[in-house]
Amino acid sequence: WEYLNNNVCYIKPFFNFNKYEICIVYANIDNNVSKNWKTQLIFNHDDGHWYFLKSEKSLTTFNDNKGDGGQKKWDDFVKNTLNDPSKAVKLD
């Protein structure tokens, strides 16, 4: 948890647009409004683990713009980012 570096962690939910099929849980150490939708800590509700992202991710990329509630974008993110150790580290 070197990323936290003794800072307060703000855990937040992210709902994409007007649909509530998927809620992404993420955390910030900065409660600054300009950073509200960006994170390096994200919770994978599929496996029950937090992940540290090696580069900051904007949660707005999960917005539903094709009517699927963002599920496909989430599934692709898990497959291509969370399952790739060069992009994300699973925190136990």
Rank of each mutant, 00 (worst) to 15 (best):
N5E: 06
V33W: 03
D75H: 09
N44I: 03
G70S: 03
A88E: 04
P13E: 15
V33M: 05
E56A: 09
Y26Q: 08
V89L: 13
W1D: 11
D47M: 01
W1C: 06
K90C: 14
K66R: 06
K54R: 05
H49M: 02
V33P: 03
N44Y: 11
K12A: 06
N18L: 07
G48V: 00
E21F: 12
I29N: 08
K12P: 07
V89W: 01
Q71P: 02
N5F: 04
L59H: 09
W37L: 15
T60V: 07
I29G: 08
W74Q: 07
N7L: 05
I29K: 11
T39H: 08
P85V: 13
V25Q: 04
Y20P: 13
N32Y: 09
N18T: 02
D92V: 15
F15L: 05
K19M: 07
Y20D: 15
D75R: 05
F43R: 04
I42E: 02
E56G: 06
F62Y: 05
K72E: 15
C23G: 03
D76W: 13
N7S: 15
K12M: 09
I24P: 03
K66F: 10
C23T: 01
H49W: 03
F14K: 07
K90N: 13
T39F: 09
G70C: 10
N6L: 06
N83Y: 11
F77I: 01
N65L: 15
N44K: 09
T39Q: 08
V8S: 10
A27W: 03
L4G: 06
K79C: 12
L82P: 02
